[in-house]
């Protein structure tokens, strides 16, 4: 498959026009199912009570925070190796979305931790590594916009995205390597999930909904970014044009 076809903004616009109804529709449908089953059609946990419903936002947000970062790292590699212009734009466009998911994960975890663990925050390995992920997102965004030439910011932040990718396995395995307060994986294990099916339905509906939501938002943001660049180019052309006229 020739990915460079989608490097052209016009081609990308056609592709995103075709994908947009599916991603936005998928987000709406799955989020609706997830919210309904999560809030009304699933039982309260025998230990956690009603607070278990926070997990239907917290766990998918945590997955998304890592999924978006993986996308960011792949986009960074594509920007560095193939100098793919769309990858540069995509990295810039999805980083704030990933940071927002990470923030949502931290906030919901904190809200859940207060009644369950009795504290808003503990310096547990999982919490700390997710906090570092949030900082890396912030650094990525700051570095991306720190230069006068956007290309330089895009390449520099791409290198940072790749270096920061070391954090992903640390987050994933932190609950196994350091036996601290955060519970170990209960879904992605080799044997059957340790969660009841009635709770898995809202969890997966929310996770799929979050993924579609991310894709839809990413498409919108990439298009906006491309339009912004075009606007900038037109503005430059106009300024250049006017100086030529003045000289003549």
């Amino acid at each position: 498959m020739n990915w460079h076809r989608y490097a052209s903004p016009a081609n990308f616009k056609r592709l995103s026009d075709r994908l947009m109804p599916w991603t936005a529709g998928g987000a709406a449908v799955f989020l609706a199912i997830g919210v309904w089953t999560g809030l009304f059609a699933s039982p309260a946990d025998y230990q956690q009570g009603e607070t278990v419903r926070i997990m239907y936002v917290h766990v998918p947000a945590a997955w998304m925070s890592m999924f978006v970062y993986a996308n960011l790292a792949v986009a960074g590699a594509a920007a560095l190796v193939w100098r793919h212009p769309l990858a540069e734009v995509a990295g810039r466009a999805i980083a704030p979305v990933g940071a927002a998911f990470t923030f949502l994960c931290l906030v919901t975890g904190s809200l859940w931790g207060k009644p369950m663990w009795g504290t808003w925050w503990v310096w547990d390995a999982r919490l700390t590594s997710v906090l570092i992920l949030f900082f890396v997102y912030l650094a990525y965004m700051a570095l991306n916009s720190a230069f006068d030439e956007p290309e330089r910011g895009a390449r520099a932040s791409a290198v940072l995205a790749l270096v920061g990718a070391i954090n992903l396995p640390i987050i994933k395995f932190s609950v196994d390597w350091w036996n601290t307060l955060h519970q170990p994986a209960s879904i992605t294990r080799l044997d059957a999930p340790a969660v009841d099916p009635s709770m898995l339905v809202p969890l997966f509906a929310m996770a799929v909904g979050f993924t579609f939501f991310f894709l839809a938002v990413a498409l919108v943001r990439i298009r906006a970014e491309l339009l912004e660049r075009r606007l900038e180019a037109l503005r430059h052309a106009r300024v250049a044009g006017s100086t030529i006229v003045e000289r003549a």
């Binding site: 900082f135 912030l138 720190a146």
Partner: peptide, 18 residues
């Protein structure tokens, strides 16, 4: 990474400290 960046010092801290 931050050579030539507009806001050197604080940016460097944000990149390096994590």
């Amino acid at each position: 990474l931050s050579v030539g960046a507009r806001k050197g010092g604080a940016l460097l801290a944000l990149i390096v400290l994590p």
